[in-house]
Measured scan of single mutants.
Amino acid sequence: TRVETATETAWISLVTALHLVLGLNAVLGLLLLRWQFPAHYRRLRHALW
Rank of each mutant, 00 (worst) to 15 (best):
A26G: 12
W49D: 03
L48R: 00
A10Q: 06
V3E: 06
L44A: 08
A6G: 14
W11H: 07
R2A: 13
V3R: 01
A6N: 06
L14E: 00
R34K: 15
F37V: 06
T9R: 09
F37K: 00
P38C: 06
W35H: 15
H19M: 13
W49S: 02
L33I: 12
R34F: 10
H19D: 12
L24F: 12
H40N: 02
H19K: 04
E4Q: 13
N25V: 04
A47R: 12
H19N: 13
P38I: 13
W11Q: 08
W35G: 12
H46W: 07
L44M: 10
L28G: 07
A39C: 06
L30S: 06
V15A: 08
A17P: 01
A17D: 07
W49Y: 01
L48Q: 10
N25E: 01
T5Q: 09
E8G: 03
T1N: 03
L22A: 10
P38A: 12
W11Y: 15
A10V: 05
S13W: 14
L30I: 10
A17R: 02
L14D: 00
L32W: 12
I12C: 03
R2I: 14
T7L: 08
L18T: 00
L14T: 12
R42A: 13
R42L: 10
A6T: 04
E8K: 05
V3P: 06
A6R: 11
R2G: 10
R2F: 12
T9D: 08
L18R: 05
L20D: 04
T7K: 11
R45I: 05
H19I: 15
G23T: 11
L18Q: 08
G23R: 02
L22W: 00
L28Y: 09
H46S: 03
F37R: 06
T1M: 14
L28E: 01
W35D: 04
A47I: 09
L32K: 01
F37D: 02
R42V: 04
T5I: 06
F37S: 07
Q36Y: 15
L31S: 06
T7H: 13
L14Y: 07
H40T: 12
E8L: 04
L44S: 01
L32E: 03
R43P: 10
G29V: 15
H19V: 15
L30Q: 05
V27I: 14
L44T: 06
T1F: 12
R42D: 11
V15P: 06
T7G: 10
W11K: 00
V27C: 11
N25T: 05
A17G: 07
L33W: 03
W49E: 01
L22P: 09
V21S: 14
T5P: 05
L44H: 01
G23A: 15
N25H: 07
V15N: 03
A39W: 09
L48K: 02
G23C: 15
L33H: 06
I12W: 01
L48Y: 00
L22E: 06
E8I: 02
V27L: 13
R45T: 09
T5K: 03
L18N: 00
L32D: 00
H40M: 12
H46I: 09
L22G: 06
V15Y: 08
W49N: 00
S13F: 14
G29R: 08
H40L: 11
N25W: 04
R45N: 09
A47H: 03
L31F: 09
L22N: 01
Y41S: 07
L30T: 05
S13P: 06
Q36C: 11
P38M: 08
E8Y: 03
Q36P: 05
L48V: 13
L24I: 12
V27G: 10
R42I: 09
L44G: 00
W35Q: 14
A6D: 02
F37W: 00
H19T: 15
S13L: 14
Y41P: 03
A6Y: 07
E4W: 05
R34S: 05
H46N: 11
T9M: 11
A10C: 03
L32R: 06
L20N: 02
A47T: 10
G29L: 15
L30D: 01
E4P: 01
F37H: 01
H46A: 05
V21I: 05
R34C: 06
T9C: 10
Q36D: 03
V3L: 11
W35L: 15
L24Y: 10
G23I: 14
L32S: 05
L20S: 05
A10N: 01
Y41V: 10
R2E: 13
V15W: 01
V3K: 06
A26I: 14
L48W: 00
N25M: 04
W35T: 14
A17Y: 03
V27H: 08
A6H: 04
L24E: 02
R2N: 12
A6W: 01
T7Q: 11
L30E: 05
T9Q: 09
L30N: 08
R43G: 02
A10R: 06
S13T: 14
G23N: 02
L28K: 07
T7N: 11
L44Q: 00
L18S: 06
G29Y: 01
A39L: 12
F37A: 02
A6I: 04
L24S: 05
V3I: 13
A47V: 09
E4A: 13
P38R: 13
L30C: 13
G23W: 08
H19A: 15
A26H: 00
P38Y: 10
A47F: 11
L32N: 00
T7P: 15
R34L: 08
H40K: 01
V3H: 04
L14M: 14
N25Q: 07
T1L: 13
I12M: 10
V21N: 05
T9Y: 06
E4R: 09
R42M: 13
R45K: 14
L44W: 04
W49V: 01
L24Q: 01
L44Y: 04
T5F: 08
H46V: 09
N25C: 01
R45Q: 08
R34H: 05
L20E: 01
V15Q: 03
H19W: 15
T5A: 03
I12N: 05
S13A: 15
G23L: 13
S13G: 14
A10I: 07
T5D: 00
T9H: 10
R2D: 12
I12Y: 10
V3G: 10
V3M: 02
R43M: 05
V3S: 04
L33F: 12
W35E: 10
L30K: 01
L28N: 04
L18A: 07
F37P: 04
S13H: 07
T7W: 13
V15M: 15
T5Y: 08
H40P: 09
V21T: 14
N25K: 05
A47Q: 10
G29I: 15
T1S: 12
Q36M: 14
F37C: 05
T1D: 00
A6L: 06
G23Q: 05
S13R: 07
A39F: 11
T7F: 08
V27W: 02
A26R: 05
F37I: 06
L32F: 03
R2Q: 14
I12S: 09
A10H: 01
P38H: 10
G29E: 02
L18E: 01
R2V: 15
E8R: 04
L44P: 08
R34Y: 10
